[in-house]
Design a protein around this nucleic acid. Structure first.
Length: 647
RNA sequence: GCCGAUGUAGCUCAGGGGUAGAGCGUUUCCUUGGUAAGGAAGAGGUCAGGGGUUCAAAUCCCCUCAUUGGCUCCA
């Protein structure tokens, strides 16, 4: 038996080492610089401690800060460091879990009986850096379950004891650094000295094990870096992201507002926001007309029975806005939480033949849902919102092509708006729990297959989530992120086998027999409110020309040119170009500055020269002076720009 | 809904037991100008609402409401 092992590096090169070598040793043998930067190692595809001995032939990839796994190892170790600091500062606390997350890490702490002040996070940061400077090595210890249990019983930490219950003897490890020991499967960075900068970002409550019936722990979110400079850059990035917040821009550009008196979660659209919204609706209506949709209109309330039939009352009625009772007859109505039941009734308004299908009903339907107060958030989570809803009634054989058409429509709309950063999520059944779903197995199989094929054929960047399907059918959602990286669902396409049954929808087939249609729910934007919120954050308020509430601002050099400006304004209005004249008694520099701040796409400066020539001097937002052109020329230029965007 | 934070002029924010502050915006006047802020004067507040402590509360305490960071939820 040889004491030598062969290690294969990512470039395919093979090197021979003594048995028991660590990834760190391997790194040192390549270069000292590399060794200093190694945080963890990927050994045969699994991320491990870089300091663990390797006893057999393996493939090895050294992980540094530039690898995602390197970062997450660093952050996970930082969570341990934070826990160490917290234990030192606040003796008696109990620890929940402390994982790394996409941008940093957190630790859930039970501070019960311990005086913790969330205003003084710098103290914790300081302590962490102090401990980091000790360069304490992370030491891995395999430990028996009984010893682990004994340790935490002694310590009195019921959370760790509960975690241990779910673990098997023989698979339990502790990691120790400095005076701190934690139940952990690892891996960790070699020592705490790699952590050079930390920032505790926020403090939040989090239910133990995500269960709202259990105790709420205090969660400290933080991030760490190997260089102070990177922390600074990260914080600046966060600061910039805040500038894109739709709540801030919505206020600045006077798009929407809220009023306590009207009620929380009930947005009020200001004139400029309303224009934006109407343009978006108009654009979508036009696209849908081309795609064979028929527009319908339904009321904002519906008889309670309607939702009993649809099943929504049973599922959501209790914790929803309560029914409205009429005074004389004691009838019950619900605020419309969905448009689909209404559309089902439209479908039922006359007998249908297979020749009529697919039937596509579209409506900008305003719905009301009782969202928990703590969930409300700007325009992205509100209690009254308008869905760009449509329901397609088709045969099972048409599901795939209809689904594909919807995806095409969504992609067309997204690309027209310059939306690039979205992903798709295909939600299928949980194969373990078939009883959760209604509808025929074979229909589900067909529908699931159709959705996957469509996602593949349309080249979507998608992930599959098993168990995320609605009980009535599989779906495909379009997910986007806001300025701060939070994920939101926008567009959705869902196949539904339930409502056609509940509403006993029918069509007469070629065989002259009654058949049940399949329903597809779809909303490319999801809701106008959320979509506009995300749109604002994506473009930071610099809307595409065709959407901008004010597309142009006419800026007269002085009062003498107001008449010319008014004439020009009238001509542009005739051409469907919208904006305003800045007639204030201000210098041109001031007017330009204000128009720039308001993010108006084109500023038309008119003075002596322009009024004499029938021209405008054009200045483009964020670009500057782009020269002078005749009025008609500008109209053509403008319309070409819009046409380019909507290609 | 739960845990935490915040709430002062239209907006952004300072102040912190003893006469309510700034910048921007707004109004009026002067100025009539050429590509990111011309000048002057004025108006504007029950310091979120309610209760308490105090000689005195915007300030300290309690409650409510709203906003907000998360958690849970999301047809």
């Amino acid at each position: 038996m040889s004491d030598q092992i062969t290690i294969t590096l990512p470039d395919g090169s093979k090197r021979s080492y003594e048995k028991g070598v660590s990834a760190l040793d391997v790194a040192s043998s390549i270069s000292e610089g590399l060794a200093r930067n190694v945080l963890a190692a990927k050994i045969d595809g699994e991320v491990k401690d870089a300091f663990r001995p390797i006893d057999e032939d393996v493939s090895l990839q050294l992980l540094t800060w530039s690898d995602d796994e390197g970062k997450s190892t660093m952050w996970h170790s930082s969570a341990h460091l934070m826990a160490e600091a917290l234990e030192a500062l606040y003796p008696g606390i109990k620890l929940g879990i402390g994982p790394s997350i996409e941008n940093g890490f957190y630790y859930d702490i039970d501070f019960e009986g311990v005086d913790f002040d969330s205003d003084n996070l710098e103290i914790i940061e300081k302590k962490m850096l102090e401990l980091a400077r000790e360069k304490n090595a992370f030491i891995r210890k395999e430990i028996s379950k009984s010893d682990a249990v004994a340790y935490y019983q002694e310590k009195g930490d019921e959370y760790k004891l509960e975690l241990l219950e779910g673990l098997e003897d023989g698979s339990i490890s502790f990691y120790e650094q400095g005076k701190f020991t934690d139940l952990c499967r690892g891996p960790h960075i070699p020592h705490t000295g790699y952590i050079k900068a930390v920032k505790i970002l926020n403090v939040a409550g989090a239910y133990w094990r995500g269960d709202e019936n259990r105790k709420q722990l205090t969660r400290l979110y933080a991030i760490s870096f190997p260089k102070q400079k990177e922390l600074k850059e990260h914080l600046e990035m966060l600061e910039q992201a805040k500038q894109r917040d739709h709540r801030k821009i919505g206020k600045e550009l006077e798009l929407f507002t809220f009023s306590e008196r009207v009620g929380k979660g009930l947005p009020l659209w200001l004139p400029k926001g309303a224009i934006l919204r109407e343009r978006l609706e108009g654009f979508l209506k036009k696209s849908q007309l081309k795609a064979g949709y028929d527009q319908v209109v339904t009321p904002h309330i519906g008889a309670k029975d309607l939702y009993v039939t649809s099943g929504h009352y049973a599922k959501y009625g209790e914790d929803s806005f309560q029914p409205i009772h009429t005074p004389a007859e004691d009838e019950e109505f619900l605020l419309k939480p969905m448009n689909c039941p209404h559309h089902c009734e439209i479908y039922k308004s006359k007998p249908r033949s297979y020749k009529d299908l697919p039937v596509r009903y579209a409506e900008f339907g305003t719905v009301y849902r009782y969202e928990q107060s703590g969930e409300l958030h700007g325009l992205t989570r509100v209690r009254g919102f308008t869905q760009d809803d449509a329901h397609i009634f088709c045969t099972q054989d048409q599901v795939k092509s209809e689904f594909g058409n919807v995806v095409d429509l969504v992609l067309y709309i997204f690309s027209s708006l310059g939306f690039k950063d979205f992903t798709a999520q295909v939600s299928l059944r949980d194969p373990e729990k078939p009883e959760k779903y209604i509808g025929k197995d074979e229909d589900w199989e067909k529908a699931e297959k159709a959705i996957e094929e469509v996602a593949e054929e349309k080249g979507l960047d998608y992930i599959i989530e098993y168990g995320e399907a609605a009980f009535y059918g599989p779906k495909l959602d379009f997910m986007v992120r806001d300025a701060l990286g939070r994920k939101w669902q926008l567009g959705t396409v869902q196949v539904d086998y339930s409502l056609p049954d509940r509403f006993e929808l029918e069509y007469i087939g070629r065989d002259n027999q009654k058949h049940r249609p399949v329903m597809i729910h779809r909303a490319p934007f999801g809701s106008m409110e959320r979509f506009i919120a995300i749109l604002i954050e994506n473009c930071a308020g610099d809307f595409p020309l065709w959407l901008a509430p004010d597309q142009i601002a006419i800026l007269p050099i002085s009062e003498k040119y107001h008449d010319y400006a008014k004439g020009l304004y009238g001509e542009l209005q005739e051409q469907d170009i919208r904006g305003f004249i800045d007639e204030r008694d201000e210098k041109i520099g001031k007017k330009i500055r204000d128009a720039e701040v308001k993010k108006i796409p084109y500023m038309l400066i008119v003075g002596e020269k322009e009024s004499a020539d029938g021209a405008v001097s054009v200045r483009q937002h964020r670009v500057g002076d782009i020269g002078s052109m005749k009025k008609e020329e500008f109209v053509g230029f403008f319309h070409n720009k819009v046409a380019d965007l909507l290609k």
